[in-house]
């Protein structure tokens, strides 16, 4: 039951995308997302889609894993599309009772769906090719300048990596406690909503107790090894830009210019798009 939850969805591999500096991937994803919202036209979306396809191919992650992310937001996408479809004012092409569909609405709904799909695919590619630790490392180093604004960058990054690290541990623990309580005759799967919620108490109480105990142990272990926050802390594997990272930045910049030009000057109107 708990095994179906797949968080921290890193897909091990050694593709060029896996080897890129996490900062490059973060910036790349950000640029990609911004481009989706800033330059919204059919032509720009086709170009962005092609780029995305190339990136997915380069990552060597099976398509199945990438599409899994889409499943989770299917309903969000559906609702967004429907809202856009029915609530956008403009030239009415279809009308039933108070519901009306406009040409602009259709256009908006399709654009929104494409945008969301690209957004999820783009960020999935980043999390699939970057370990959670690299990701937080990249954030900490990449956002270091925010410390000037008194943003506790290191602390946030540390909290993130600890939280991510503890997901599998607590999931294991939950499984173990569930087994132990099942062995005592606990029943997690039958009965109505209230009965099921009550049945969770023997699982949740020990899980919380264990989480606090582990947090306490971890804090002690960190302090006894001299941890005192981010001030003056050095890294075992500092992030250093390689040649490929500079090239990747170049490609990202090129992508931005290209998408801008396509958005500005290329007009594609598909027959099914009003």
């Amino acid at each position: 039951m708990l095994k179906e939850i797949t968080l921290g969805q890193y897909y091990p591999g050694n593709s060029i995308l896996h080897r890129l500096d996490p900062r490059v991937k973060l910036v790349g994803t950000l640029v990609f997302i911004i481009s989706l919202f800033a330059f919204g036209s059919t032509s720009a979306y086709i170009a962005a889609g092609l780029v995305l396809a190339v990136v997915i191919t380069l990552s060597a992650v099976p398509l199945k894993f990438i599409l899994r992310g889409l499943k989770m937001i299917f309903f969000l996408m559906l609702i967004t599309a429907l809202c856009n479809l029915f609530l956008t004012p403009g030239d009415v092409i279809f009308k039933v009772w108070k519901l009306q569909i406009t040409a602009q609405g259709v256009r908006m709904a399709i654009h929104m769906a494409v945008r969301l799909t690209y957004l999820i695919l783009g960020s999935s590619i980043m999390t699939l090719t970057t370990t959670p630790n690299q990701l937080t490392d990249g954030m900490e180093t990449g956002l270091g300048w925010m410390r000037v604004l008194h943003v506790p960058v290191h602390e946030i990054a540390m909290m993130m990596s600890i939280a991510l690290r503890f997901i599998p541990i607590l999931m294991d623990e939950a499984n173990r406690i569930m087994n132990a309580q099942t062995a005592r005759g606990a029943d997690f799967t039958s009965g109505g909503l209230i009965r099921r919620a009550r049945a969770l108490i023997p699982l949740l109480v020990p899980l919380f107790v264990s989480a606090f105990r582990r947090a306490n142990d971890l804090a002690l272990a960190m302090e006894s090894r001299g941890y005192h926050g981010g001030e003056g802390r050095t890294r075992m594997n500092p992030l250093v830009y390689q040649r490929r990272d500079h090239i990747a930045y170049g490609i990202i910049a090129l992508y931005l210019v290209m998408i801008f030009l396509i958005w500005k000057y290329v007009e594609i109107s598909l027959p099914f798009l009003p």
Partner: peptide, 16 residues
Amino acid sequence: RFRVGVVFQYPEYQLF
């Protein structure tokens, strides 16, 4: 499960 009682490792973590 009532006939075969299983005591898992560190059973104290199941107290609630």
